[in-house]
């Protein structure tokens, strides 16, 4: 693959957050170069550049005071450690510059630390083989390594960021009703009203959410991994995301007041129980009654 191909691939992204968060790269000018008017193009480029610089500078200023701790914000050591992890485990499929390798893996430019966190902390990445979808596995890296890897990808391509470790991602119990409504409206059509998951077409699945942590739920909504749509902060605000997380986690932790939950998968399990346990006991009973003259 030539260098030009890579640049084209970047340009085709048209991914606004990456541009904003990554002002130093060539992407803005290349995207702008398609536009017709020279003056407007230069003015727009300037505006984007100023905006991007302000965003990065402001963002850094906001994050800098809290970055002294362990894993919340990216230090240069974190980025360096992340680069080493990347070069060990990710580079084969995602390329030396996160540009992706045709037939192996997609570009990671603009995916951000949130996507890295979701994919690696759920064990989906690094993937042993190519497939229609990756399933949840035991993660290969520690939480700190995952954040370092995320910091590296963030530093290279920008994108949605993983929320810091000390952030409370669960809304209060007064938000449960709203969270439930949002969950049923946006999530239940694939994951099911009880979050037990469901198959999609052709072997793909919407996984169950019973092993997901708050941060995994949050980052999944933010980046929309695999077949899941992106629920950006414009569609579902961070507060609403936290309400959804509160609802999902409360529902998961809640005991079943009616007895055994039967997997919370509804009438199919119930039908199975009545035909095996219910009718089974009764058939044994009638055999017993019939045998006792």
């Amino acid at each position: 693959m030539t260098d030009e191909d890579n640049l084209d691939a970047d340009a085709d992204l048209g991914f606004a957050p990456a541009v904003v968060d990554n002002a130093g790269r060539t992407a803005p000018t290349r995207t702008a170069s398609r536009r017709p008017s020279g003056f407007r193009r230069r003015a727009a480029s300037l505006a984007v550049l100023i905006g991007a610089l302000t965003a990065v500078g402001g963002g850094y200023a906001m994050l800098a005071p809290t970055s002294g701790a362990d894993d919340t914000a990216a230090t240069s050591q974190d980025v360096e450690a992340g680069r080493q992890l990347y070069n060990t485990s990710c580079i084969t499929c995602h390329g030396a510059n996160l540009e992706g390798v045709t037939g192996r893996g997609p570009t990671l430019v603009g995916t951000g630390s949130a996507d890295v966190y979701f994919q690696v902390s759920t064990g989906r990445m690094p993937a042993p083989v190519q497939g229609a979808l990756e399933l949840r596995k035991v993660p290969k890296y520690t939480e700190q390594q995952i954040l370092q890897l995320g910091a590296f990808v963030q530093s290279q391509g920008g994108g949605p960021q993983v929320p810091p470790a000390d952030a409370d991602l669960r809304a209060g119990s007064d938000q449960l009703g709203d969270g439930g409504e949002l969950f049923r409206l946006n999530c239940a059509s694939c994951h099911g009203a009880t979050a037990h998951g469901a198959p999609l077409s052709a072997g793909k699945i919407a996984p169950d959410l019973y092993r997901s942590t708050d941060r995994q739920l949050y980052t999944a909504m933010l980046v929309g991994p695999e077949n899941m749509p992106v629920f950006s902060n414009n569609q579902i605000t961070p507060e609403q995301k936290k309400a959804i997380i509160a609802y999902v986690q409360t529902m998961k932790e809640a005991k079943d007041p009616g007895g055994a939950g039967l997997g919370r998968i509804g009438p199919v399990a119930e039908g199975l129980v009545i035909w095996t346990a219910g009718l089974g006991v009764l058939m044994v009973s009638i055999l017993w009654i019939g045998a006792r003259l």
């Binding site: 099911g192 009880t194 037990h196 007895g259 055994a260 039967l262 009438p267």
Partner: peptide
């Protein structure tokens, strides 16, 4: 054995649908 836990399903809203919605057997 818990059957038809309606509190987990939520109230009906025509805009919503859950995957794995099945009738009784």
């Amino acid at each position: 054995a818990q059957i038809n836990p309606v509190w987990l399903f939520g109230p009906y809203n025509p805009a919503q649908v859950s995957s794995g919605s099945q009738p009784d057997w």
